[in-house]
Design a protein around this nucleic acid. Structure first.
Lengths: 237, 237
DNA sequence: TGTAAAACTTGACTGTAATCAAGTTAATTG
DNA sequence: CAATTAACTTGATTACAGTCAAGTTTTACA
């Protein structure tokens, strides 16, 4: 059972877990004893979604926590002016729905599968029982929230202060950091979605990556796959 | 004792509380019984900071939760390229330090007083005892984190998708929403800091507000005070 | 209250990146 | 595997907003 550093890394691909294992993949549960895990697994329903299906949409009632056991889900919001913004991409072990469980009980964003996806579903009422029964879960979720908040604020700061070229460079550097073994980066989504995540346009992504390649910082291997040749150079743009 | 909707509203001025009352002002505590509140107040230290002093700076060890009982504190971060970004302004009843308490135990940002400020300090170890003794506090903090996360993501979306003029209009609208009784908005900080919060420059703030005034959306009363004349018009820019 | 400093305003200029458009490549699917 | 669609590339143009500079107003404080 591998410990994950963060939820929604957005960079590299994880190997999928099986239906039963999804609970044990999640940081908020994987500190529990085996028999406690088994007890939780009993209460979990496994559901399959086809590519492009919505798990939930904005304004839906929140009544469940969704854990990805296989596949990929993108979470996006609509801005005040109707533009789409990708918030994160969930991979196996990541989860969603937790925010609204403690807050408004209405979803603010959209969750849509990128490929065929298997999710584990925990009902709100069952989760609340679990929080009472195992208080350590609350602390885990607090840590998870703190981590998410930190990431979100970091992202906010980047949007507000860095230019597009720098944001793209920082994004690539972050991907490298997550898979340090290899210099190869596999983008989890299309340029269109990546542009939406980085607050720019597909054209700008294309131009910038081409420029990075001309400058010898990266090499485009094939669609969605890049090789980082000069990380330090990249971070000095 | 008034209930506050959010931490760090960043828009309107609150009336200050006294030393003893600060604990009861905070959403994470104000659901507790009076004798429980009194117990917590015993453990709290009250500290005074002069204008411009730092409560903490980035890379400081985290060992306390700070609750503002009087005054104003700005929380800002530095971006990768060294630019300053204002994250929020704390007013009486708001608190800071909670994030790192559950996470890295190192501060990522800076907390600096804007005017002379009185804060209540709760030591990390005491807060942790409180969390064990009163589990409902954890749930309150979870809700608080959820709210903060939602706000942060909303702000992120704005930076990423809206132009400066729209961001300023949305900011003003939000201030209106917090003080619906009056059409008057009192900006909590200088244009320089507001620009840092909205990811723009003081010049752009000045120009935009002048344009809004020419268009009849607002009226500049005096420095830091605006009157909103046409909220709907403002939101259609 | 007078002086210095800070905050704000306005103008001119510049650069980044968005938009629009058309063409190319890659992926999907019947 | 061919056909259709989606994704990406490249170019030309535009505009938003940042920067620099100089002047004005307001605030702070000695």
């Amino acid at each position: 059972m591998t410990e994950k550093k963060h939820q929604s890394t957005f960079c590299c691909q994880h190997s999928g877990g099986n239906d039963q294992a999804c609970v044990s993949l999640v940081p908020i549960f994987n500190h529990l004893e085996n028999d406690q895990l088994n007890e939780i697994m009993q209460t979990v329903k496994s559901v399959r979604f086809n590519k492009g299906e919505f798990i939930y949409t904005a304004d839906d009632e929140v009544d469940s926590l969704y854990i990805v056991s296989e596949g990929k889900i993108k979470i996006f919001h609509l801005s005040e002016s109707g533009k789409e913004l990708l918030i994160r991409v969930l991979q196996p072990g990541d989860f969603t729905g937790e925010l609204a469980l403690f807050q408004d009980s209405i979803h603010k964003g959209f969750a849509q599968t990128v490929i065929d996806t298997q999710v584990c579903v925990i009902k709100r009422s069952i989760l609340q029982e679990l929080l009472l029964k195992y208080p350590s879960i609350s602390l885990k979720i607090l840590a998870e929230f703190a981590s998410r908040l930190e990431k979100s604020e970091k992202q906010t700061i980047r949007y507000a202060t860095e230019k597009v070229e720098t944001r793209i460079a920082l994004y690539l550097a972050e991907c490298m950091h997550i898979t340090p073994a290899s210099n190869e980066i596999k983008l989890p989504v299309s340029y269109k979605d990546l542009a939406s995540y980085l607050g720019t346009t597909p054209e700008s992504i294309s131009r910038t990556l081409t420029r990075f390649e001309e400058q010898g910082f990266i090499k485009k291997e094939k669609q969605h796959v890049l090789e980082i040749l000069d990380l330090d150079g990249l971070l000095l743009v």
